[in-house]
């Protein structure tokens, strides 16, 4: 069952193409790693699918999927230093697209549950701006988990995480994928994690270099170049 399909997608940045004629699809229960060098258009692709950037050409179809069933963990957010907010408030805002007017008791309980699973429950009333980068990243992950129903997009999620939590993070995502049937689309540089976790690889350099099963990718020439580095 297809959830998202991109057909001949082109995205321009000041007239120069950042993503060119790119086609791929995300199916139910997929676990896709998007690999590529710096400036290869990985984040641009993600942002275009998420409606944060305008596409120049091509089509993006959502099938069996509504926008409010998507979760998103951005690479970084421009933190407003004087924004007053607690961890709990921020995580709860993950439900922003699926609440009527106010958050329900059930949603608040879910937040507590997610905070517990990420070992954040003891800082739930702490001000967000006082946290370390790594902890902030965890809080944003918790928010993304609240929003996620069918697909979770992650943009270099492990950039600020310590090695111990990175491991926990991957097992958490795997569990989400296998037990809750959530499709995962992750932009990353971490080829080793990709080999361990991904079901599919999308390797791009503006255009698609490779898109397919991980086993086939490991046999391909692109993987060899990447692995040698």
């Amino acid at each position: 069952m297809n959830l998202i399909s991109c057909k001949n997608l082109t995205v321009n940045y000041d007239k120069e193409a950042a993503v060119e004629n790119l086609s791929f699809s995300v199916s139910f229960k997929d676990y896709i790693f998007i690999l590529g060098e710096n400036g290869s258009g990985k984040s641009t692709l993600l942002k275009t699918i998420l409606n944060l950037k305008k596409k120049s050409k091509g089509e993006i179809f959502f099938e069996n999927l509504k926008r409010n069933e998507i979760g998103y963990l951005p690479q970084r957010i421009t933190l407003k230093k004087d924004f007053p907010s607690t961890v709990f408030e921020i995580v709860l805002s993950g439900f922003v697209s699926c609440c009527s007017l106010f958050y329900s008791k059930k949603q608040k309980l879910k937040v507590l549950q997610i905070l517990k699973s990420l070992k954040l429950e003891n800082i739930k009333n702490v001000s967000f701006k006082e946290l370390s980068k790594g902890q902030q990243q965890k809080v944003l992950l918790a928010r993304a988990l609240c929003a996620t129903k069918k697909v979770l997009f992650l943009d270099e999620p492990c950039a600020n995480l310590d090695p111990v939590f990175t491991k926990e993070f991957y097992s958490l995502i795997k569990k989400l994928n296998e037990e809750k049937n959530v499709a995962i689309v992750m932009v990353s540089h971490d080829i080793e994690a990709a080999i361990l976790n991904a079901k599919k690889i999308l390797h791009i350099k503006k255009k698609v270099l490779f898109f397919g099963e991980i086993q086939d990718y490991l046999k391909s020439e692109f993987a060899k170049v990447f692995l040698r580095k």
Binding site: N51, N68, V96
Partner: peptide
Amino acid sequence: DFTKAVGV
């Protein structure tokens, strides 16, 4: 960005 991405 997040708010927009999740469909608000």
